[in-house]
């Protein structure tokens, strides 16, 4: 008997917990050549900004062991272009759309949220807190619980009441739980983690940084254990808050790992660059993993690793 992948988060009803991670699905059209976007749990868009952005100079990408560095610099059409072209297209294809937004001040985020609230086809908003805060010398919002909370409060205050707001957290913090708490206290309906880890590579031939950035965000399987740890810690502290787990997911088994750690949904990103149809494959593999374990519903696996089995508890006390 097939396993039930349906995922209910509040009033959201998704056919699957597998999402595309922000910045890795283009505008949706690029992906649609290879896969049916309506069958993905939801498409998380590239981060949308108020104005069009040309992005960062090239080279923007570098391969690293089990991952890659990237700094595209939020190249995109801006909110006007997004609302005119990208969002209606996603809606016409039957995709559920989580719109990722990015800005340099809480006011910009709030304005983006209110523009999105007037548009049809916004399933949820993901707040990309990885952008530099203009009022804090360019420190990303996600590194400071108070700054992150202010942005989330501005978005929650401007977004239509029935659009859930997810805050995307960075792993580059001493205590991710404190940032998570600040976002939830400020009104976030859910959390998304993790963003890329800042990294850098130097080209041994040119003797120069490999990226024009010169630093970039590290993604791919190399960061999956970091994602599992962050999801675990936040789930432990805030068990009732839905989490989108992201970070280096390549297979259905990888997705299951994040679900077990406490993610209710799993976003796949870097894998799409070499396998643009990965979402459909990962959904199929996840279902097979569930069937192999005799599990009927994916929801039963969310946070399952936190439950103490008799054996684990016993072994734990013995070790101590």
């Amino acid at each position: 008997m097939p396993a039930d992948l349906r995922t209910r988060i509040g009033h959201l009803d998704l056919p699957s917990p597998i999402l595309t991670a922000s910045g890795c699905a283009g505008s949706g059209r690029e992906l649609a050549q290879f896969t049916d976007v309506a069958r993905i749990g939801a498409v998380i868009t590239k981060s949308v900004t108020l104005e069009p952005r040309a992005g960062n100079p090239a080279p923007r990408l570098a391969e690293t062991p089990s991952g890659m560095l990237s700094s595209p610099g939020l190249q995109g059409p801006g909110i006007d272009g997004f609302l005119q072209r990208d969002l209606p297209w996603l809606l016409s294809r039957g995709a559920r759309t989580f719109v990722s937004i990015a800005g340099h001040s809480a006011r910009e985020y709030g304005e983006l949220a209110s523009r999105l609230s007037d548009a049809a086809g916004v399933t949820a908003i993901e707040v990309n807190l990885g952008c530099p805060d203009a009022s804090a010398a360019g420190r990303p919002f996600a590194l400071d619980p108070a700054a992150a909370g202010q942005v989330v409060a501005a978005v929650r205050g401007s977004a239509r009441y029935d659009i859930p707001v997810f805050a995307k957290l960075s792993p580059e913090v001493t205590d991710i739980v404190s940032v998570a708490r600040a976002c939830v206290s400020a009104g976030a309906d859910g959390l998304s983690m993790i963003n890329t880890l800042p990294g850098m590579a130097i080209d041994p031939v040119s003797l120069r940084p490999a990226l024009a950035g010169p630093a970039g965000g590290l993604s791919g399987p190399a960061i999956r254990p970091v994602a599992v740890r962050c999801v675990w810690q936040v789930r432990e502290a805030l068990p009732d808050v839905p989490i989108i787990g992201t970070g280096g997911v390549r297979t259905g088994r990888d997705a299951l790992e994040l679900l077990l750690a406490g993610a209710a949904m799993v976003a796949v990103g870097t894998v799409l660059f070499h396998d643009p149809s990965a979402c459909a494959r990962i959904q199929r593999e996840l279902e097979e993993e569930l069937v192999a374990r005799g599990v009927d519903r994916v929801a039963d696996m969310v946070g399952r690793a936190h439950q103490h089995s008799g054996y684990a508890a016993q072994r734990h006390s013995w070790v101590l």
Binding site: F34, G55, H274
Partner: peptide, 14 residues
Amino acid sequence: MTCGTGLCMGCVLP
């Protein structure tokens, strides 16, 4: 090196 499908925004030129 990069995706070749329009997703990664790595191959841009003006």
